[in-house]
Design a protein around this nucleic acid. Structure first.
Lengths: 192, 192
DNA sequence: ATTATATTAGACCGGTCGGTTTAATACGTG
DNA sequence: CACGTATTAAACCGACCGGTCTAATATAAT
């Protein structure tokens, strides 16, 4: 009972990591197999739907990890704007660490496959939705209106996803650092 | 002299369009060839470096098209904040048109290949840089400080790239519409 | 011990990938 | 026209792709 979960879980974790880094088509089944040391027969035993099924579960896994990452910071910081700022700062830290590369968590796979695989598109959409709601909830708890919180959630998610992409492409944490720095200015309530 | 440019140009345009939609590994050379009706020999005549070289030129082409798209709107609108808002609104319009799909202009290819191909990563980085500077210039001309303009350029680029990704994944223009709607609130100068 | 089941192992498949090669053909220029 | 170059054409290559299949092997229950 323990070995089973380990094998399947190892497959999901390895796939999640590789997909984050190189997207869907950039990762072969054999890459995942070699890196996890698991034979091909096992993969098709646990994932009879093959690569696509494995990818859907890998996306679900990444979604959960990221939610945990967000909530851990949010629990420590009451003010929602400061919380978002801290969240982005921690993201910068994590991305600096080259041992466990973060990549573009869902973005790489989403941008590749959104038009060619509905199951994958839906899985990515679900991840984005839940991340957005995790942000929104923080603002609702702080007294923002539902519409305000929803809109801010979308904007925060967009600017973070975009910032990660810019930082990866520039090989520099500057874009994300600038975004973190400017978050209070961006989100500050002004007239009303 | 005319046919040459047409053949090479057709190759670049077709590659640009397909890469935007499905990323790098998602597009085979044969897809590009079939769609443009050009034989493989010609491709390797014009692009002896093969797929990677073609991709670099396709990215350069996309970069130029997007700059033209931005500047056309910017010329019509003096106020930089309104100009950015109009730009995003036009982006929503263009993406609604399914005849000439926009995709995730550089994002798809950047997120896939940033870690595995330096030439492609650099080409994408160059595109992002120039887009950012196109935004920044608008704010400098309106009297913003250099640092302010630079930071705003990064943020606008990030939120747009992220918004496109969210809209494509959601199959909805809502994320981009919300971003456009909130742009004045985000960029409004407050204290200072 | 026996049986049923879950899992591992990896050879194998057809198809497609990016890329190479060679020969034919169009074309510009003297 | 003749000649050298630019271009087209497609057969072909080895490598790798995702996926299938069958047999061996653990594992658990009776």
């Amino acid at each position: 009972m323990t070995k089973k979960l380990n094998t399947k879980g190892m497959l999901i974790e390895t796939a999640s990591r590789l997909f984050r880094m190189r997207g869907y088509d950039g990762v072969g089944l054999n890459d995942i197999l070699k890196e996890s040391g698991i034979p091909k027969g096992s993969l098709y035993h646990y994932f009879p739907e093959g690569k696509e099924g494995l990818a859907v579960e890998a996306i679900r896994h990444t979604k959960g990890v990221v939610i945990g990452f967000i909530e851990e910071v949010f629990e420590r910081t009451e003010d929602p704007i400061k919380a978002v700022q801290n969240h982005i700062c921690e993201l910068v830290e994590v991305m600096r660490d080259e041992k466990e590369p973060v990549g573009f968590p869902i973005g790489a796979i989403a941008s590749e496959k959104h038009s060619t695989s509905e199951p994958i598109r839906k899985a990515c959409h679900s991840a984005f939705e839940e991340w957005k709601e995790t942000y929104s909830r923080k603002f609702i708890r702080a007294g923002y209106s539902e519409k305000q919180a929803e809109d801010l959630g979308i904007i925060i998610l967009a600017v973070i996803e975009g910032g990660i992409l810019l930082s990866l492409t520039a090989k520099s944490d500057k874009p994300l650092r600038v975004i973190a720095e400017q978050i209070p200015m961006l989100l500050a309530k002004k007239s009303g």
